[in-house]
Design a protein around this nucleic acid. Structure first.
Lengths: 197, 197
DNA sequence: CTTTTAGCAATGCACTTGCATTGTAATAAA
DNA sequence: TTTATTACAATGCAAGTGCATTGCTAAAAG
């Protein structure tokens, strides 16, 4: 029938604008007009794709989390054929914002996490808190120890838990500029050396 | 001259109102009128004590951080005469929001940390990122190992760093309701057992 | 008692906000 | 070519915002 455009591309552009504004001015400054201006479109277009401002912000956050998870998973797959230790290190490193785009997404997550306090539904979406990931990581730890010939000890699930909590904590520091990515990497590697050694 | 009131008490009441609103509705919903209503005073009174909204929010955040630090320090002093290990455990535990007021302050910190992305000056104020604390903690770790008869190993400063990063990371999870304080405590203790054992 | 001043309370105002409404141009199906 | 429908653009509007201004009241200094 009529003019058909790529909705996905439009929403992505708008989400990008929301990201930029959020990082630059904070979430409270994300308004329909500013998003339109940032994206270089009219306010009508924004309204066409999002029923409410809440909808828009929600989608932008959702897309950011997806993009971040995609980067972690691609890190896992990129080092899939090497040793378990390499895979373990690599996927934890993915949370440290070591390239510009990862850093951007990381900062965005931090900028947004506060909303989850007054909006508990958001808490589940953020952060890698699922059991599946922890089991997977616990398996990697066990395998890495076997590679090293280190006897297994302790509770692998808690070890995995600590790895992720530490890595995301380091990531927060990096996002806030309180730590360089390299310094965070050093701390993480130090922990893994102790854990596997 | 004229009527004299306790400025400190007034500002504290207003800050309390800001806290409550922030936890309940998020920072973006903190307006002069709502704060006045929450505190049960007129909007004029709020304006009398804060020149701008920004001033008000800044002061409320500052007071929250102060209160949280005070709780950590009081934890240290409360266990001052016992073993180094007890002191170490106790001051790290203080970041886990184990009593209602600590939890409230912890949640408030999380609700506010996002602002630090677009307002880097705030980053320094939040979180226990100073070197002094890390040195102190490194000292506690060394002393605790001596108490246990464990030979010292690794880098005490990085160990201390990891302890705090882990503890604050766990605190974030608790604040978001993704972890119970008891669970977080278990993870922290597990880590300290490994570290000191 | 007078006077001065801190401590508000009340109101007003320009501005911004999200959202609704309406109009219009383009295009694919008929 | 007609027509239906998508994709906007433009404008309007009520509500809410931060802040300025004004006026009043109570109490301490004189």
């Amino acid at each position: 029938m009529p003019k058909i455009v790529d909705h996905e591309e439009r929403r992505h552009r708008l989400a990008e604008a929301v990201w930029t504004l959020t990082l630059h001015d904070g979430l409270e400054c994300v308004t329909l007009r500013k998003v339109a201006a940032q994206a270089g479109v009219s306010m009508g277009q924004v309204q066409h794709y999002y029923a409410t401002r809440e909808d828009m912000v929600r989608d932008a956050i959702h897309r950011a989390v997806q993009a971040l998870n995609a980067r972690i998973e691609s890190s896992i797959k990129a080092s899939g054929s090497t040793s378990a230790e390499t895979t373990l290190r690599e996927c934890l490193r993915a949370t440290l914002g070591r390239d510009p785009e990862s850093l951007r997404l990381l900062q965005l997550s931090v900028a947004v996490v506060g909303k989850a306090i007054s909006e508990p539904a958001l808490a589940g979406v953020l952060g890698p808190g699922d059991d599946e990931l922890k089991d997977f990581t616990a398996g990697l730890i066990a395998a890495a120890r076997q590679e090293r010939g280190t006897p297994s000890r302790g509770d692998g699930r808690i070890d995995a838990d600590i790895c992720w909590t530490l890595a995301t904590g380091l990531g927060v520091d990096v996002a806030l500029g309180q730590r360089s990515p390299d310094e965070a990497l050093g701390v993480l590697d130090y922990h893994l050396d102790n854990l596997l050694g």
